[in-house]
Design a protein around this nucleic acid. Structure first.
Lengths: 118, 118
DNA sequence: CAGGATCCTACAGGATACTG
DNA sequence: CAGTATCCTGTAGGATCCTG
């Protein structure tokens, strides 16, 4: 039993909440600015870095790279590097990642309904 | 038809993505640090400000107030003020808010599964 | 009791340029 | 092609004190 409080930075709190509550943990993994967009585009199959970039034009290379790294670390995507020249790197969803798809569908439906009610 | 790009700040992007994609819109509404926690506690019925605070000890009064306001604006909670002294304010989920509960359950299940796989 | 007001900091995210 | 490196900014969130 560790203490939880004691000089909380924003994300000390974030993580401690996520530790307790699996749904908060889940949302924390997904609440990166580009995470959902990436997942959606990968839900139809693997894509290369450049293809992702083309499909999400607003994202900068830096952010795309960062997000993908984080998602790899979080076991949402698999990163495959082909040792060729020019380099080729492909991203695809993990098992866990795919299991999110039905949840996305529901969020999508909810989002549409909710939006139309405003 | 407005333009979308042109000097994007973080949340100009965020919103423009949310405009296009209902699931991103949904996640944006839910990704406040305390939003989920509040929803969960309200899913069993209405609560007063102080009760919420007691149930989520890590949150500061300021943040709780801010989040609740935002959630009210986003039509996730209803805020009822009773004109008494001392003041009493109760919060409860809206229809939309309640419709999220089953989705939370699934996120919770996913979160647990995912966590155990790390 | 249920918050406002004030002040502050860490971090997410952006712009741009460069490279194996 | 698929990134790093560097530098910078806005904003979410925290601490603390005050009040109808």
């Amino acid at each position: 039993m560790r203490k939880i409080k004691e000089s909380s930075t924003h994300f000390a709190n974030k993580n401690s909440l996520g530790d307790i509550c699996p749904e908060i943990y889940a949302i924390n993994l997904l609440s990166g600015q580009w995470t959902l967009a990436i997942c959606c585009h990968l839900s139809n199959g693997k894509l290369r870095f450049g293809e992702l970039k083309k499909r999400i034009p607003q994202v900068t290379e830096r952010m795309l790279a960062l997000q993908l790294r984080k998602m790899e670390e979080d076991q949402l995507v698999i990163r495959t590097v082909y040792p060729e020249v020019p380099p080729r790197v492909e991203y695809e969803l993990t098992e866990s990642g795919m299991e999110l798809i039905p949840i996305f569908k529901q969020l999508e439906a909810w989002g549409e309904r909710h939006k139309s009610r405003l």
